[in-house]
Amino acid sequence: MSTILECKHLTKQYHQGDTTVNALQGVDVSFNKGEFVSISGPSGSGKSTLLHIIGSLEQPTDGDVILDGISLRNESRRELADIRLNRIGFVFQAYNLIPVLTAAENVEFILQLQGVDRQARRARSGELLKQVGLEGLENRRPGQLSGGQQQRVAVARALASHPAIVLADEPTANLDSKNSDELLALMSKLNQESNVTIIVATHDPKVIAHTRRHIVLTDGNIETDETRAA
């Protein structure tokens, strides 16, 4: 399998008053195309920071991220926005859908930002919402959907632009057990069908159990990186 994402000696330091916090301490890790990876670790271990840096939402203090052959180190804010738009999908813990847009419009929004024409947008959002099991709910606004349904819309939105990777930060944290299971089954299915790389930061053992590769972070370092046999 080809490498889609490479983290080279990622270091991140925060300053809180006079104290320096080392969120990441030289993390080296690669991800292959089509992998479904979970990253876990105690609070403050650096999971979210790693995800943010991979997603170009934050810059590392040192090191580099190579995504699909592109170094994120020296890109401008505008170029990073374009990279996020075209190559990265995000699923957040709190769903983070745009409340004034319908489910279909939330999915289409990404495509609109890409300049995709109306007809193609409609077709793609319809296809994705069908894939995530929300057929018939396209015209509902987030406030009219359950938490599980909102997270499914978020997954559909993350996949809308055919990204190279999907980053999910605690995607099941706000869901009940049933909805968590359904979401994980959906993500596994989409991972296999679309061959998209999915990286999930999580505390949830169920999520970890769904992924073949599991990385444990402790104090900003990779403690274990295990891949289970298929």
Partner: peptide, 15 residues
């Protein structure tokens, strides 16, 4: 917070 989400999903800051 919502603006942060919009920036995260790829909306340019200028837009």
């Amino acid at each position: 917070r919502e603006f942060g989400v919009l920036l995260s999903i790829g909306m340019r800051p200028g837009k």
